[in-house]
């Protein structure tokens, strides 16, 4: 049981980072990015190919983060341009459809060009005993990185001028404009950030289990579930929902089986939507 809970925390922290990237973009721009998982997969592939070329793991991983940020910038500059011209539900719907198209292009190409490839980073060192459970170094390193990333996100959003500017746009775009904040610029920043977060997930996930080129869609769905449970536009929500769902998932997987544990996650998300939809939906009054 303790082992399942600890595994759940490792997983949950990654869920939290995964969902933060989706939820910020939705909260700020009303854009649902269904190619988010593919951003993570492309970053993982960049790390993999760089390491194949003989570069050590750490610079390769940093290059992966850079690639994620570049992808976010690219999304903002190209496919999302026509999306920004719409408002409300039409914007969400169009963003969903266009990024679904992008997801298919990426999936199709990667499955054709790099079939069955996957990134797994091996972290050396002996297993460490925590609360009577032997934890692998990879899991600990992954959790350490995700914790640091989440802490930085918290700090930036709560205490810096930039974070306040971004939160003000989420709360009231008109008001933010009036006090001199440029919403499109904030949106570009957030998309770059979401790309970097996707890359962080790819790198930390690969320390625990391989990240395959086909993983894009399931990563997006997981992110979406955590986002929906946590509340759209809220990093704290994403973090808490990630932890809760990660622990539920690990316990259910250990005692019931993988497929059914995913159903439990899905049902939990479904019920959250039904019980408090207004608290989860940022754009609705």
């Amino acid at each position: 049981m303790t082992a399942s809970i600890l595994d759940g925390i490792v997983l949950g922290l990654q869920f939290g980072v995964l969902a933060s990237g989706l939820t910020l973009v939705y909260g700020l721009g009303g854009v649902l990015n269904l190619a988010y998982g593919q951003m993570a997969v492309i970053s993982a592939l960049v790390v993999l190919l760089t390491m194949d070329a003989g570069v050590p793991a750490v610079p390769a991983a940093l290059l992966g983060l850079l690639a994620g940020g570049l992808l976010g910038w690219l999304f903002d500059a190209t496919i999302l341009r026509p999306v920004y011209r719409r408002k409300g539900e039409a914007r969400v719907l169009l963003s969903l459809l266009l990024t679904l198209g992008v997801a298919f292009i990426v999936d199709g190409y990667l499955n054709w060009a790099y079939p069955l490839r996957g990134l797994s980073l091996r972290i050396g060192g002996d297993a460490v005993e925590i609360l009577g459970v032997r934890m692998r170094m990879g899991s600990l390193a992954a959790s350490g990185i995700t914790l640091v990333v989440l802490a930085v996100l918290f700090y930036v959003f709560r205490y810096t001028r930039l974070g306040r500017a971004i939160r003000s746009v989420i709360e009231n775009e008109q008001g933010a404009k009036l006090v001199g904040i440029d919403p499109p610029q904030m949106l570009r920043l957030i998309l770059i950030l979401s790309g970097v977060l996707a890359a962080v997930v790819a790198v930390t996930r690969s320390m625990v289990a391989p990240v395959n080129v086909q993983a894009g869609f399931s990563l997006t769905v997981l992110g979406l579930i955590v986002t929906v449970v946590g509340g759209l536009g809220s990093i704290t929500g994403a973090f808490l929902a990630g932890l809760v769902l990660g622990i539920i998932n690990s316990i259910a997987a250990a005692y019931i089986g993988t497929f059914l544990s995913l159903i439990i996650l899905l049902v939990a998300a479904g019920f959250t939507i039904l019980i408090r939809p207004a608290g989860l939906l940022g754009v609705r009054e």
Binding site: I79, G101, F104, I105, D107, G108
Partner: peptide
């Protein structure tokens, strides 16, 4: 084969 997915993605867009 797999590249058909690319065509469909482009088609959606």
């Amino acid at each position: 084969g797999q590249l058909r997915l690319v065509a469909y993605g482009a088609l959606i867009i």
